[in-house]
Design a protein around this nucleic acid. Structure first.
Length: 426
RNA sequence: GUGAGCGUAGCUCAGCGGGUAGAGCUCUGGAUUGUGGCUCCAGCGGCCGGGGGUUCAAAUCCCCUCGCUCACCCCA
């Protein structure tokens, strides 16, 4: 095991074809739904200047402080493997002057992210996200639309999940609120657990998440940020809720929901699922109206979310996963060298006609080929032997019910095409 | 970074009051030499994660190390 050349790095992994079946189902579904809402794909580099993330995400965040894959390149630039994509997408949005387009610019992305963390259930050092970013509006209906789209994705995949929302206010009212909160916590230190004493200083909003019983009384008395917002933010939040209500979307207000990145303002939301262990968030997002300016762009209002693909595929129902698995519709089996030559010819012809088929050069006897066809769950086997060569027609066997009949090459192609049209073949 | 648990066949695991390895599944061959699944039979396959120590003897006991897993912190 310790022989390192044949081992991947900790926190990374190989995704084998069987596991990828579920991933493809999720990705296809996401592309379809995102398109329904007008999101178009953008691909940005997975490596960017360290400064982009440090400023964008926030110097004091855990991500920037201790989780980035940062190194000097040969040109002595400090570069970083992206720990998330929003900063990159905003950078691309500014650099390509997409803000000059009118209307809301909707972008989506798919790809790997990197964070140097300790491996855990639902957490990897290289993990994958699908995300969306909508630029150019702070209309609360946009917040609601984005959230609706996120839920539609979960629903289409048959994933049971709960929506948590909160408003973290703007810089102004959040600063005011956290100052107030910190003051109260300082006066209650003796009634808090060790973790919360630390949080009271470093990340006071996190206190709301504490599971320790002794902290409960104090937490119950704390003012909630959603009720301490300035008029503008408060109005925005209640509008978002109204739009969600109008869309028939159920949500839970989570006073302690603060995303771990500095750029979030106002709407913050998360979709959580059971069966995921401690890392139960499969989707997280929020509004980040000031981020563009932080990295040197014009004022841009924006909101987005990211889905943890690794976690989403973990809770994907089995039947959805199976629907993404590849199964050959036709396995071509042959006996003897003349039949082998014929098999090659038929395979070529079928593929030219846009049909797929599978034949194996290592299988040996006809029995072995049949066994292999069964094992890979082929729907049909085309059998070519001396009899078939003499007749110039072939035996096709339907594995499901063991029925078999004779077909010419033309009939075979027609049969496969008809099945494809009926949607029996992916 | 901290804590706990676990590393034995390709996979899941048993063996751990020391005597140099076993099962199920998988794989290969056969019963069935032009027909899969089911059944039966046989076979392949292990420096027991690595290193050191104790001992006549270590998968088993001790130490170190690497890796994996879960949890804390935090996040997707």
């Amino acid at each position: 095991m310790a022989e390192s050349l044949i081992n991947n790095l900790p926190g990374t992994r190989d995704l084998l074809p069987e596991e990828l079946a579920g991933w493809h189902v999720v990705e296809d579904c996401a592309r379809r739904i995102f398109r329904q809402y007008g999101f178009l794909e953008i691909r940005t580099p997975i490596i960017e200047s360290t400064e982009l993330f440090a400023r964008g995400i926030g110097e004091d965040t855990d991500i920037v402080g201790k989780e980035m894959y940062t190194f000097q390149d040969r040109g002595d630039r400090s570069v970083t493997l992206r720990p998330e994509a929003t900063a990159s997408v905003v950078r691309a949005y500014i650099q390509n002057t997409l803000y000059r387009e009118s209307g809301i610019t909707k972008l989506c992305y798919f790809g790997p992210m990197f964070r140097y963390e300790k491996k855990q259930k639902g957490r990897w050092r290289q993990f994958y996200q699908i995300g969306v970013e909508a630029f150019g509006s702070d209309h609360p209906a946009l917040d609601a639309e984005i959230i609706e789209m996120a839920l539609r994705l979960m629903d289409s995949l048959g994933v049971q999940a709960k929506l948590l929302i909160n408003s973290v206010g703007c810089r102004k009212c959040r600063t005011e609120y956290t100052k107030q909160l910190r003051q109260i916590l300082q006066s209650e230190l003796e009634n808090l657990c060790d973790d919360c004493r630390r949080r009271a200083d470093t990340n006071c909003l996190r206190v709301f998440d504490c599971k320790i019983e002794r902290c409960r009384p104090v937490i119950g008395k704390l003012p909630v940020i959603a009720e301490s917002l300035c008029d503008e933010c408060s109005g925005h939040f209640s509008s978002v809720k109204t739009y969600l209500d109008g869309a028939g979307i159920a949500y839970e207000i989570a006073p302690g929901l603060v995303r771990g990145l500095d750029y979030y303002v106002r709407t913050a939301f998360e979709i959580v699922s059971g069966d995921l262990g401690a890392q139960n968030a499969i989707l997280g997002g929020g509004r980040y109206d000031g981020l563009s300016e932080v990295i040197g762009g014009p004022p841009v209002q924006a909101i987005g979310f990211a889905v943890g693909l690794d976690r989403l595929t973990m809770v994907l129902p089995e039947e959805k996963r199976e629907s993404g698995m590849w199964k050959p519709d036709l396995f071509i089996a042959y006996k003897g060298d003349a039949a082998f030559q014929k098999a090659l010819h038929i395979a070529r012809e079928l593929r030219r006609l846009q049909q797929s088929c599978y034949l194996d050069f290592s299988a040996g006897s006809l029995k072995r080929q049949m066994r292999l066809a069964n094992k890979i769950d082929a729907a049909h086997v085309l059998i070519i032997g001396d009899d078939e060569l003499a007749r110039d027609s072939y035996t096709i066997k339907k594995m499901e019910d063991s029925s078999q009949w004779e077909v010419t090459l033309e009939e075979l192609a027609q049969y496969l095409q008809a099945r494809g049209k009926q949607g029996k073949v992916r």
